[in-house]
Design a protein around this nucleic acid. Structure first.
Length: 594
RNA sequence: GGGGACGUGGUGUAGCCUGGUUUAACACGCCGGCCUGUCAAGCCGGAGAUCGCGAGUUCAAAUCUCGUCGUCCCCGCCA
């Protein structure tokens, strides 16, 4: 006899049907004379009832414990009036058990499988199979599946074909640290796991594939974060004979359909666009969170404080820096205002990010005395607040200043904006806000390497080739990033499809001819054989999934994620291997090791 | 590489600042008993932690100090 239904799918339509269910014991309520068990499977929970009339069955049912695996056969019945449970989708029915088989027992789980308590993450990862029985995580995996399914369906419908690219490939300089895999057949050499299928997808364009996509695992051996795992998934897209608008339109269609089909949220297209320069100057980041509209935009007040008696400000400007600020209106701040200890904490936060200090201006600010009445009025005027006179004004915003190099001021104020929004629990005006960040510089100067490096990657086309002979910091890239709620979802560009231009970029990046040939020779070669103009994008699938699931960390949308040290508590990976394995790989075994 | 937070029965927390009436508290879970309509069942009883690990200060350390390990957040890093 086989299962006939999922627990979670039963309702009044099934009344009087004989059903066979399989599932785990979610909770049991033994009333002595009647035993209720909430039986759980992937689709949900249903109450099953053991009645004392069936004596043998009842005695066996008394032995049932949490997480036992049961198969039960019984009749679906409408619950008696007054015993219906509106909190449960199946709450109008229950199963009167006629037969019950314990398919497996279970030890007492190390933590409760419950929506009401969540164990520490390390323990949850060690017993991930139990954690994944929780509704929230199980639902996350289902949403993840729906997302990838919808992506494949939609892109296939748009004429894209999914092609698998190698996981064992070639290490390339630039970019993230590679994971390496030793080659047994070629002692002393290594494959690298791909950071992305970038070069392969470009080569597929040369092949005439025209429209490629892949939902693909990528690997980067860098430090982990809430939104960064060593292996992660991208929606990788590449198209031939297109410009920026084609890629952007494709992604807007994809994302808006996903938002509609998965969340039921209608997103208007086209999405907003913002220049990189504006984003940095106004939000202190290239991934601005626009859900808060105009709250706490960064404002430059250098001009109005340059001549002031406050030396920290005037000298910062004199030294070629700037004075910028964010302001928090009292309405947002709440009636309490910022306590001194809160200001101290924010100051610590700012200095921790490289600021020399954090100046603040309100009615009781100690720096107020360094400014003339006119200067104070002007400061408020620049941030868009009309302050008449210099009497205490309870409606005046609190203003936080950073006087520093432009880069530091922007970065610190951008982080401060996010921090204050979080601390004050400021409500977003919009739930989901997409924005394209465009007009990136092609290069940025690396102080560490004393050369220009690619901001995006070395295959990105400049807007104007002629600019490459001038000031390299002024060269704009044909690149675009898609940002959702302050998260960088992905980025792409129109690629270089001419060998001579690609070689020129490599030389600007101080990648020598021989190194370029050694590392990227196959790409340069491919470009010679009729490479079509092409471009594309890669979207962070885990990050998208996390936002749609309402999770802070991508670990909660990945079935088996790793800890911050890259460890899998479930399997214990990474682990030492035997000397035999190492010898086969021609890797030297140190003395004293097995 | 750096900054910060945390680590107390099986789980989640309190206690730590201000060392000693603490026999380390509470909730959940677990075990036993009672109970025929509960649904995060209820009532009664019980077991279970030398407070991550190590050293130090002290008459006395969960509590203070240092080190160490682990987890998490952030900077660097992530084209």
């Amino acid at each position: 006899m086989k299962r006939t239904h999922y627990c979670g799918e039963l309702n009044l339509k099934n009344v009087n049907q004989k059903v066979i269910l399989c599932g785990w014991v979610h909770t049991r309520r033994d009333h002595g004379g009647v035993i209720f068990i909430d039986l759980r499977d992937r689709e949900g929970i249903v109450q099953v009832v053991f009645r004392p009339e069936e004596k043998d069955l009842f005695i066996r049912a008394e032995k049932i414990r949490s997480e036992y695996v049961l198969q039960i056969e019984g009749n679906v019945s409408s619950r008696p009036d007054g015993t219906k449970n509106p909190k449960l989708p199946t709450g109008e029915v229950e199963i009167i058990v006629e037969k019950m088989e314990i398919l497996n027992t279970s030890e007492v789980p190390p933590f409760e499988i419950s929506s009401f308590s969540v164990a520490g993450e390390e323990l949850r990862l060690k017993y991930r199979y139990l954690d994944l029985r929780r509704k929230k995580l199980k639902d996350n995996l289902i949403i993840r599946h729906k997302l990838s399914h919808t992506v494949r369906k939609l892109l296939s419908g748009e004429g894209f074909i999914e092609i698998e690219t190698p996981f064992l490939t070639k290490s390339t300089p630039e970019g993230a640290r590679d994971f390496l895999v030793p080659s047994r057949l070629n002692p002393g050499t290594f494959y690298a796991l791909p950071q992305s299928p970038q070069l392969f997808k470009q080569i597929l364009m040369v092949s005439g594939v025209d429209r490629y996509f892949q939902v693909v695992r990528c690997f980067r051996d860098e430090d982990l974060r809430a939104d960064r795992q060593p292996e992660f998934t991208q929606i990788d897209i590449e198209m031939s004979f297109v410009d920026e608008e084609d890629v952007i339109a494709t992604v807007e269609k994809l994302l808006s359909v996903l938002m509609r089909d998965i969340l039921g949220v209608e997103i208007k297209t086209p999405f907003a666009r913002m220049d990189y320069e504006y984003a940095i100057n106004t939000y202190g980041t290239d991934k601005p969170d626009l859900r808060y509209r105009d709250v706490m935009k960064i404002t430059d007040v250098s001009a109005v404080v340059a001549g002031s008696g406050f030396k920290i400000f005037s000298e910062a400007v004199k030294a070629g820096g700037c004075v910028k600020c964010v302001s928090v209106p009292p309405a947002v701040d709440g009636k309490a205002g910022f306590s001194r200890s809160a200001i101290d904490e924010l100051t610590k936060f700012a200095t921790g990010l490289g600021a020399k200090g954090l100046a603040w201006l309100n009615n009781s600010s100690p720096i107020k005395r360094f400014f003339s009445d006119g200067e104070i009025k002007n400061i408020y005027s620049v941030i868009g607040y009309n302050r008449e006179g210099t009497q205490p004004d309870p409606a005046a915003p609190m203003v936080f200043f950073i006087a520093d190099k432009k880069e530091t001021a922007n970065a610190v104020l951008g982080a401060l904006r996010t921090e204050i929004i979080n601390r004050l629990k400021i409500k977003p005006v919009l739930e989901y806000e997409f924005v394209w960040v465009v007009n990136f510089p092609l290069f940025e100067w690396s102080e560490e390497e004393k050369r220009f490096v690619s901001m995006h990657h070395p295959f990105t086309q400049p807007v104007d080739e002629k600019m490459l002979d001038g000031d390299l910091s002024k060269v704009a890239a044909r690149a675009y990033d898609i940002v959702l709620n302050g998260t960088e979802l992905g980025g792409g560009s129109i690629r270089i499809h001419r060998t001579d231009l690609q070689e020129k970029i490599f030389s600007i990046l101080k990648i020598s001819g021989s190194e370029a040939k050694d590392r990227f020779g196959f790409l340069l070669e491919a470009l010679k054989f009729g490479a079509p103009p092409h471009g594309g994008i890669a979207l962070g699938f885990d990050r998208l999934c996390a936002i749609l699931c309402g999770e802070e960390s991508i670990r909660d949308v990945i079935a088996f994620p790793k800890t911050q040290k890259g460890i899998c508590p479930l399997t214990g990976a990474p682990d030492a291997v035997s000397s035999k394995q190492l010898k086969e790989l021609s890797i030297e075994v140190k003395d004293g090791e097995k």
